[in-house]
Design a protein around this nucleic acid. Sequence first.
DNA 1: CGCTCGGTTGAGATAATTCAAGTGCAGTGG
DNA 2: CCACTGCACTTGAATTATCTCAACCGAGCG
Lengths: 251, 251
Amino acid sequence: MDALLARLKNYVDLPRPSEAALIGMPHVLKQMPRGKTIISEGEVIRRFHVIQKGWAIRKRLLEDGRRQIINFLLPGDVFDLQAMIDSKSDHGIETITLCEVRSIPTPEFLSVVSAHPALSSALWWSAVQEEGILREHIVRVGRRNAIERISHLLFELRRRLILTGNADPEDPVALPLSRQLIADAVGLSSVHVSRTVSAMRRMGLVATNAHLRILDPESLASIAGFDSHYLHLDARPLGQVRFNDGRGSMA
Amino acid sequence: MDALLARLKNYVDLPRPSEAALIGMPHVLKQMPRGKTIISEGEVIRRFHVIQKGWAIRKRLLEDGRRQIINFLLPGDVFDLQAMIDSKSDHGIETITLCEVRSIPTPEFLSVVSAHPALSSALWWSAVQEEGILREHIVRVGRRNAIERISHLLFELRRRLILTGNADPEDPVALPLSRQLIADAVGLSSVHVSRTVSAMRRMGLVATNAHLRILDPESLASIAGFDSHYLHLDARPLGQVRFNDGRGSMA
DNA sequence: CGCTCGGTTGAGATAATTCAAGTGCAGTGG
DNA sequence: CCACTGCACTTGAATTATCTCAACCGAGCG
């Protein structure tokens, strides 16, 4: 199934025609190897993008080389609100695994969405969830210590992967993360992340052969003080609220 | 002039009828003393809010009392996207000075906005700017040291105040911030903030009588490595893009 | 006048960083 | 098949940024 569709279904059951419209939008599908730039900082964004497969990061680079990962983009994630206005991107987006990325020109995207209230309402939910993830990341980095930050991040990623059917809650979830990626996400040095992850391995929380695997999500959540309400999994459609352009005729 | 209007004018010149519609929305205007809760964590949000006067904070509290300020809400700021979906707020909002807050029920807000493309486009800009501020806050907290964090925050606040005519670029801007507020915003302890601010005073960057005043914004910006493009001050309207509900008839 | 509250300052403790050396694996080329 | 290289990861030791605890100060207020 389409990755975005799978994600939005956590919020509403889309009527068949809306599903069809979502999948049928004119788009370009691109395979990208790991480490490629999807959007570069300063570029004007004129298309919406959807991650179909693989992982990407949003990141900012400081002049002296320090890097901050703003968040991780997983299958089913759409970006970017910035496509709504004609402005230069304030951050870059880059693949960290082999990816399949779908992109749709802004006007076409909006006209499809505006014709389908259920779609637009689901996309609002998606935007609210994304903002929630951003806010929680601020809390993570600002007020938690190393093991809490890492545990919280890992648990969030697992939760989000499960949401789109990209991970099985029963299995140890594998994450394609290097120490350096984790470090740049949670604001630590890669060697301190290495030490902390080693400690977590000794505690039986994760395994670290080839990929990082989550062995004990419950303990992870409790160490992290994880509270999932920022993911808005409880949200239910209010009225019909459109994510809309003003040009096409209103269906 | 209306605070929100003043802010949106940085993006578009709203046509008279749109201005009138914005100001004329059915609303409640509330005076609130310092330290009052506008929205509490867990509450379902059914109204949009606009800060008319004063300052507020978005914050998250951890179980053990640690507090993280997610961002500052200044005159002209609108919140919250979360009003678009029927879900519990994942954070609290609280005044930190005497405030005047306007609130509009979601459906009324949306129907006015959907009738005015220029308004909806301006509100998209506002949402994009807010997301940019959130992202930059992550970089600030994740990858900058104490003096950089504080300088960056102060400079951003000054810039935003100037944007809405709440500060004069020529004068030393005064900010109603305690050491503790700064600490909880940038993820430090209040005593370390105190030390750092004292150092900044000795460097001639700020004054600290009664209120914190910014004396030397240029040096502040250069210490902080401040780059304003995340505020999207360069953005210009693309097509007509609506911020829309799907219930009312489309004007 | 005496309290309270925010801010300041010092001293010692701690978390995380930096630098540096060493290990192990995956891929490459002989 | 083996040696060689590169890269991520690991570990130790020394250093530094920041925190905690605690005492003190001074302005504003009842």
